[in-house]
Write a protein that binds this DNA or RNA. Structure first.
Lengths: 198, 198
DNA sequence: ATCAAAACTGAGTGACCACTCAGTTTCGGC
DNA sequence: GCCGAAACTGAGTGGTCACTCAGTTTTGAT
């Protein structure tokens, strides 16, 4: 099982950083110390290797978020949203290669023809959006979040913002870290329940 | 000049939709009716072809935004932001292939070694962010937008949101159109100047 | 110690790739 | 109509690619 794990690990880094078509099995073989034949023995095809990586990514991300949710006690629903956003950004740094892979086009391309790809992707995105939505609903129940907002759609808008920031970071377009405070402020302002007049 | 234009046009569609490495010169030759040699006669290398497409994309996007800005009369700064966001989304649909290309990894990969790529990309992103920033500054001057917001950073957050939505649409992850109203609401709420108490 | 299954090997294969080049056709100014 | 330049051609080239397969090594249960 040693070689199989090494291949998965190295291939994740290469597919995420160099891209799927630009990573050759020869290179993968050289960097893992496994023969080319070994890779095909374990994963069948190059596409099969990418699928195995996506599966592992899904399991890791979902588990990490579930552990976060279990371990944390939240104050208001609004602060739960804020902490979820923070955790998303932390995780995108901690699991940098996996999140980069999710911004790569090949997983979406394969998902158009291979239902297993689509299933993993949907699970990941549904899971992430759910965590935002639950936090919003909690906030609407405790009065810290505007009750007129549509929870699911607002969760998607939040997700859009956070995921866009991760993309900026990954592409080195801007110093995304410098935007953290602005992002949190924007989230807070757009969600906040309308203030009562004095 | 007929063949050169046809190659640019078809290559834009293929690079954007199939990806750069998955598009072969043979295929490009077949679809344009130009010989393979013709492509290399005009663009030198495959990378040179991508660069020419990026250059054209930059020119088109920048020109379109400038025309939009000249033609429109805006009410408040806040409504100028809203119209800029709308126009961005409209343009991302109208120039679908070009915007898809900007979400492809290869242009960023080449920009790490080829300064011409980086220059075009920076120009595009700076230009887009500028338009958001100017609208925010206008809104802060006429009192429709919270004066405590950092114009540039807030412009980047706006850009993150809008660009993230375009990405969702391009990847068919969600019905992005259904989020339009929520996006506009979110922008309005996060920018709005604090309401005076009655 | 034995043995079958699982893991692993790496040279070999055919297909495809970006790119070349020697030659042909088209175009525009006179 | 002539001529040089620009546009265009497509068979050919060397290299790389994903994948195969016949054979070897490792593993673990008995």
């Amino acid at each position: 099982m040693k070689k199989k794990e090494a291949i998965l690990k190295v291939a994740t880094v290469l597919f995420a950083n160099k891209g799927y078509p630009d990573t050759s099995m020869q290179e993968l073989s050289r960097l893992t110390g496994a023969a080319e034949g070994t890779i095909f023995y374990h994963f069948g095809t190059k596409e099969g290797l990418l699928l195995a990586i996506l599966k592992q990514t899904r399991e890791t991300i979902v588990r990490q978020f579930e552990e976060f949710l279990e371990a944390r006690e939240f104050g208001s629903g609004l602060s739960r949203v804020e902490e979820t956003v923070s955790f998303y950004l932390y995780l995108a740094g901690f699991l940098e290669d996996q999140f980069l892979l999710l911004h790569r086009h090949h997983v979406y391309q394969f998902s158009e023809t291979n239902p297993e790809f689509r299933e993993h992707l949907e699970e990941i995105y549904n899971c992430l959006t759910d965590f935002f939505e639950w936090a919003i609903i909690a906030g609407q129940e405790d009065g810290s979040i505007n009750p007129e907002l549509h929870p699911r759609k607002t969760a998607l808008i939040l997700f859009t913002m956070v995921d866009g920031l991760v993309r900026f970071k990954n592409y080195n377009l801007y110093d995304a870290g410098a935007l953290f405070n602005e992002l949190m402020n924007a989230c807070r302002t757009m969600l906040q329940a309308p203030q009562r007049n004095n």
